[in-house]
Design a binder for these strands. Structure first.
Length: 376
RNA sequence: GGGGAGAUACCAGAGCGGUCAAAUGGGACAGACUGUAAAUCUGUUGGCGCAGCCUUCGGAGGUUCGAAUCCUCCUCUCCCCA
């Protein structure tokens, strides 16, 4: 994997670049739709490629390991072949599930014992095991196994957790370096900065991660409930330490505004369930602001889903019709909303990229951020 | 024409003397959602000067300290037989 930095904004730390993988090029800054179980929920590959123009999607180690399981993935010759997505894929390591499934897992030095959310069966994830699973899934970019700490988090716990994540990272790197990709194309490993909301820990972690000289670096453990200003401050701090010549991936972020603000801080890659999950729940991110399409106010509004949106669903369907679909619990409703939201997210980062290349990013960002926060 | 059952909040439907402003569903309305245990979850759904008060259970009257619950009449619905 290779990263080219093409332009940097003069008034902020925003950058435009390109990432080369064996499954194609990714133009940054980029948003990566989340496809946890190998499917971006409610969205066809055709729409993802031709309409939304996604360049890379996510999969999840924990979920894919449980179902369909490694045997099927191996027989399929990896996730790309299995789900038909021939562009880049990134897999999360299951580190987020250490956080989100806190009630059903045990954390030890060796690794984490998960109780499956599907059938309750117990499974151990060690850094080595997670590397092996991600070799079998065959994503282009794979993530180190970390502990995503919750918020709030006591300093002592955050410190110990960060140190554990660092020790796990060493084991991940060793195992990754001692194994080969299974399907003939390259994979690369991104380490993850932790340290909760403590500046000294974040500095320490960012330095540790930077020292690994990986192809790209991720920031984890943010957007887990901390105040948004705190998230920005810590992102800025960590970006100041992570190498400029490598892509920076802010995990799990966020709203359209969060993404623009963090692009300004120097982030190149984002992923978030928000456009799909919130979309399925009736929330639309549009160029004019945020819409809850289930609200009564749209009942008789026959204007386009998004007057200024460039997705085919934006002009194909009206707000009133989309609201009707949600009211009637028709599956097409969540599908349209997901396509719209993902299209909007990809348009947003694409536009940000253009503005960075043209040297107008900061001015443009300040104008659009105000519009995007409005609730219609 | 004869016999029977029933009318409860937006709808369906419990309740059958006080713990009832009234269970439970559904619908409606609103909110939440940030590396997906999520096509999920939460709240509200008579009125108000809202830790209290006022007006409600087809209508009118009655019994009782107290009625959605018991009695009388009226109105209307449904079912069965002819």
């Amino acid at each position: 994997m290779k990263f080219n930095l093409l332009a940097t904004d003069k008034k902020s730390n925003a950058r435009a670049g390109e990432i080369f993988t064996d499954h194609g090029t990714i133009q940054t800054p980029i948003f990566m739709p989340v496809g946890t179980v190998g499917s971006v929920k409610a969205v066809h590959l055709k729409e993802l490629k031709d309409d939304i123009k996604a360049q890379i999607i996510l999969g999840n180690t924990y979920h894919l390991y449980l179902r369909p399981g490694l045997e099927v993935l191996k027989q399929a010759n990896g996730l790309h072949k299995f789900n038909g997505w021939d562009k880049p894929i990134l897999t999360d390591s299951g580190g987020y599930q250490v956080y989100s499934l806190a009630g059903t897992r045990k954390l030890k030095e060796e690794g984490v014992i998960f109780q499956s959310h599907i059938d309750g069966s117990r499974h151990t994830f060690s850094p080595e095991k997670v590397m092996e699973i991600q070799r079998t899934i065959g994503a282009d970019i794979i993530m180190a196994f970390d502990e995503c700490t919750p918020y709030p988090c006591e300093y002592d716990y955050a410190k110990k957790s960060m140190e554990l994540t660092h020790r796990w990272l060493k084991r991940c790197i060793t195992h990754f370096d001692n194994t080969e990709p299974e399907y003939g194309y390259n994979q690369t490993l991104f380490p993850i900065v932790q340290g909760s909301v403590y500046r000294d820990l974040r500095i320490q972690s960012a330095e540790e991660i930077a020292s690994k000289n990986a192809d790209g670096n991720a920031i984890g453990g943010l957007s887990v409930g901390e105040p948004i200003e705190m998230m920005y401050e810590l992102t800025e701090l960590v970006c100041s330490i992570l190498p400029k010549e490598k892509p920076r991936y802010l995990m799990g972020v966020g709203t359209p505004v969060n993404i623009l603000e963090c692009i300004a801080l120097g982030i190149d890659m984002f992923d978030c369930v928000m456009p799909t999950r919130n979309g399925r729940n009736g929330m639309l991110f549009t160029s004019e602001g945020i819409i809850n399409i289930k609200n009564e106010k749209w009942k008789n509004d026959f204007s386009n889903v998004d007057e200024y949106g460039n997705s085919f669903v934006d002009s194909q369907y009206s707000k009133a019709y989309l609201r009707h679909l949600f009211q009637a619990q028709e599956i097409l409703g969540p599908m349209i909303a997901s396509i719209h939201n993902l299209n909007f997210y990809l348009w947003l980062v694409g536009e940000a990229r253009k503005q960075i290349m043209d040297g107008n990013f900061s001015e443009w960002k300040n104008v659009i951020v105000k519009k995007l926060s409005v609730r219609l």
